[in-house]
Design a binder for these strands. Structure first.
Lengths: 150, 150
DNA sequence: AACTGTTTGTTCGTGTACAAACAGTATCAT
DNA sequence: ATGATACTGTTTGTACACGAACAAACAGTT
């Protein structure tokens, strides 16, 4: 009797918990939807690879770790992403003579061209992702998401 | 001359593109921050594993694919997640006599206990993630994220 | 009963993503 | 100059996450 009561009580805690109201769960699903749209429109680049190209263009050139830090990915991941972009010949790496540890990463001509043609596609991806939202809602969402990561 | 002009123009397209205003980029960073908080507070479960346990409690029991569909992960991923939860003995799988393809997944007692003690921690994780937002902003964010995935 | 189509679990390959560990290099205080 | 500290790229291991392919089992049609 007591045992049964206890079980009911502990169940209650979980019963009241609604997964679909949780921010982590919703972020994953939103991300998932964005990724699906991204892959459909830009099959030759991943979102992370695209981000890295954009940032590389913005910085003009940077070391691997520096680059990763700017777009919020850690060194191990950056290593893999840069590797794949090297294979695609969108970026090139050369040793920094002033610091033998560093690899200076720069865009190749092909990388610059890829980026230039990718930008309008990316804008369309953003548009598709936010299709259900009004311009005001879009602006709000962006501001709120910015608030989350500091 | 023409070539130079063209280069400048194509650069402009990328120059005007601000990564930190893009929804995909912001979603990744927000997700990243949530994950960091999650791992710090609940090191024995991943967000996906936790989601699966919650849904399993809600459904009372389900086949693998069915379970994955309910939380928005595909069959291949679900397979791996269930595998790891089996190893941790938080769930159990038994063959469905009525349908020899199906695996009926259910929570073990340990899984139920883990879930019950994890819920308050998850609520705290949500709270920590949304620390910078007012209750009204939190509610808005949730509604906007829901709108994104249909 | 045989054919068609679908569903189920599974495996393989690719690509993030992070923790932890590592050697080589640089920096800086003493 | 030496020693401590920090930073560089790198590798290994774990865990999603998805596409594609597959065999076994099921469901519906003819």
């Amino acid at each position: 009797m007591l045992k049964t009561k206890k079980n009911v009580e502990t169940s209650d805690v979980a019963d009241k918990y609604s997964l679909s109201e949780q921010i982590g769960y919703l972020l994953r699903l939103a991300n998932q939807r964005h990724l699906e749209i991204f892959q459909r429109h830009m099959p030759d680049l991943t979102p992370t690879q695209f981000s890295l190209l954009v940032k590389l263009h913005e910085l003009g050139g940077a070391s691997q770790n520096e680059l990763g830090r700017h777009i919020g990915i850690d060194a191990a991941t950056t290593n893999g992403v840069v590797d794949r972009l090297l294979k695609k010949q969108f970026v090139q790496a050369r040793a920094d003579p002033a610091d033998k540890r560093r690899l200076k990463i720069t865009l190749t001509t092909a990388g610059q061209q890829e980026l230039t043609s990718a930008i309008p596609v990316a804008q369309n991806i953003t548009h598709q992702t936010l299709k259900g939202l009004s311009p005001r809602e879009t602006e709000r969402l962006i501001q709120l998401l910015k608030k989350i990561h500091d």
